[in-house]
């Protein structure tokens, strides 16, 4: 299982709504809105490809999202990073 964190840059006016919308995703945990337009999320996924897919989906489905910036990725099993 991969765990990745990302900063989602959003349109500040829509930020609160978007934060709520993101909570619907089962494999996304939100960590609040910071400095007006940054939402911190942590994504859990089976593979890196899935993480990427999800990022793409966010960018295409939500017009309010201006960018998705990965900041950290790790794996919760000892040799998952092979």
């Amino acid at each position: 299982m991969f765990i990745a964190s990302m900063i989602i840059k959003v349109n500040p006016e829509k930020a609160d709504d978007l934060l709520e919308s993101l909570k619907i995703f089962e494999n996304i945990t939100t960590y609040g809105l910071h400095k007006d337009d940054n939402i911190i999320v942590v994504v859990e996924a089976e593979s890196i490809e899935d993480v990427e897919k999800l990022s793409k989906r966010l960018l295409t489905e939500f017009n309010e999202i201006k960018g998705v910036f990965p900041t950290y990725v790790t794996s919760d099993d000892a040799d998952g990073m092979k």
């Binding site: 990745a4 890196i48 990427e52 990022s55 793409k56 960018l59 960018g67 990725v73 990073m81």
Partner: peptide
């Protein structure tokens, strides 16, 4: 954007 995202991930994980 998508391109750079992929390349960042590949940098910190794959190669």
């Amino acid at each position: 954007m998508i391109q750079s995202l992929t390349s960042i991930f590949s940098k910190i994980t794959k190669s």
